[in-house]
């Protein structure tokens, strides 16, 4: 599904990714771990198309399509979803209108008719229940006044609504208490399927107790330095990252 080859990227003059390779197949969950400053969040930003990152070398394809040439909105329509580490508050933009606009843009791109208000509400209710998202929050302004946990849960709700091929969760576990972490993880587990894939970016092994990955990668200094199964996460928890350098 996703194929990253020899990816180099920089912000201004600073090289952040230095030849990263990663293959993700449909149905898989990959965890990316690594020390602070290794480039984990940068990888997420580059994949989503954040403006200030410049790709200097390498390629990224999604189902064979080069996504590096695409604007962020085109990538989203092709099926890339980034759950933000710090979701943005946008007062005055209602959560539900925002989602309806986004969903219909994606549907149009896929050659589907826009959803009617009724269909949309139906879907919204189903997904709210699936990811245990509070109906009261759905009708508020986008993330405005949400707690840290509510914002993260809103990301998962959006993920459920937009049904991307590839979801990248950028430290979705950070700042969550154990209950919120369970709810978020349950949501993600319900959304896993044969047709989609997840990349979990995380500092802590804790998240991987709830969402069990197929692969664990260690990112260090802009490259993947080690890849293993879920047991690698436990090893990292015990030994830290220094032994890999």
């Amino acid at each position: 599904m996703l194929s990253i080859k020899n990816l180099h990227a920089r912000v201004e003059d600073k090289e952040i990714l230095k030849g990263l390779n990663l293959e993700v197949k449909a149905g898989e969950v990959h965890a990316i771990m690594g020390p602070n400053g290794a480039g984990k969040s940068s990888l997420a930003s580059v994949l989503a198309g954040r403006e200030n990152y410049e790709v200097t070398e390498g390629s990224v394809t999604l189902d064979g399509k080069d996504i590096l040439e695409m604007a962020p909105e085109e990538r989203a329509r092709e099926g890339v979803f980034l759950a933000f580490q710090y979701p943005i508050e946008i007062p005055g933009v209602s959560n539900i209108n925002f989602l309806k606009t986004a969903l219909n843009e994606i549907r149009t791109h896929r050659g589907l008719d826009p959803m009617t208000a009724k269909e949309f509400l139906q879907k919204s209710k189903e997904k709210q229940a699936l990811v245990e998202f509070d109906a009261k929050l759905v009708n508020r302004s986008l993330n405005e006044g949400f707690s840290g946990g509510e914002k993260k849960r809103n990301e998962i709700f959006q993920l459920a609504m937009l049904e991307p091929k590839l979801a990248i969760l950028d430290e979705t576990d950070s700042g969550l208490d154990i209950d919120a972490l369970r709810i978020v993880s349950r949501g993600v587990n319900k959304l896993r399927s044969e047709n989609n894939a997840f990349i979990l970016i995380t500092h802590y092994q804790r998240l991987l107790d709830y969402i069990v990955p197929d692969y664990v990668h260690v990112l260090s200094d802009g490259k993947i330095v080690k890849t293993g199964g879920k047991e690698l996460a436990l090893e990292l928890e015990e030994k830290g990252y220094d032994w890999l350098k």
Binding site: A76, F84, I90, V93
Partner: peptide, 22 residues
């Protein structure tokens, strides 16, 4: 905020409109 809206599939012009309306 514009990047956030775009990352959900909303085009640049529409993202700006949403922001201005807000």
């Amino acid at each position: 905020a514009i990047f956030y809206l775009k990352s959900r599939g909303i085009g640049e012009e529409q993202a700006k409109q949403l922001m201005v309306k807000a």
